[in-house]
């Protein structure tokens, strides 16, 4: 079973992102579970989205104590509280303008992939709505789900700017792809 946490602040779209990710894996024929818990349905408070993916029906209904991967919508949330749910090999994708080297120093022992979500979202006319960019970036780092499947899930569900959201997803994907290739070079 693959266990994923998406951590964001109320209003950023972490819950929607969790459901979109689950939809994409479901479209791939996998079993999924996605839910969010929030501390009062208020804008700005931390929201945690829980996503489980498996090739057999998912029965457990609890929080994720140790995640295989974390997508963090706001670098101010990448703190000890969130890292309690991480192991050293947990993939962490974070919305941040900082370089990978910064996180290698700040959080030694963790695998952190930063992506400038706001910068890329603005370039696609999406303002501060970063979830399409971050999902693309996350899918590349996680190597699943396939970009085309994720883009379709985003275009199907986006209430507006379907093409801009799909393009933002793709750019997030490509940006991380380039970053990872640089890292390997």
């Amino acid at each position: 079973m693959l266990q994923i946490i998406i951590e964001g602040r109320g209003g950023q779209g972490a819950q929607t992102a969790g459901n979109l990710l689950a939809s994409a894996f479901f479209a791939e024929g996998l079993e999924v579970q996605s839910f969010a818990t929030y501390g009062g349905a208020r804008r700005g408070t931390p929201v945690r989205s829980i996503i489980r993916i498996d090739d057999r029906p998912i029965r457990t209904r609890s929080d994720i104590e140790r995640a295989d991967a974390i997508l963090c919508f706001d670098s101010s949330l990448l703190d000890a509280r969130l890292l309690r749910a991480a192991r050293p090999d947990t993939l962490i994708v974070v919305n941040s303008v900082r370089e990978p080297g910064h996180f290698a120093n700040a959080l030694p022992g963790y695998r952190v992939v930063p992506v400038d979500g706001i910068g890329l979202a603005r370039r696609h006319g999406l303002g501060r709505i970063v979830n399409s960019v971050l999902l693309g970036a996350f899918a590349r780092a996680l190597e699943a789900p396939p970009l085309a499947v994720l883009e379709r899930a985003i275009s199907d569900e986006a209430p507006a700017l379907k093409e801009a959201n799909a393009a933002a997803c793709e750019e997030g994907y490509r940006t991380v792809d380039a970053q990872l290739k640089r890292g390997m070079a």
Partner: peptide, 12 residues
């Protein structure tokens, strides 16, 4: 149905 674990859990 339990809040969140069932009410908000998206599943097939």
């Amino acid at each position: 149905l339990d809040a969140f674990y069932v009410s908000h859990a998206l599943e097939p």
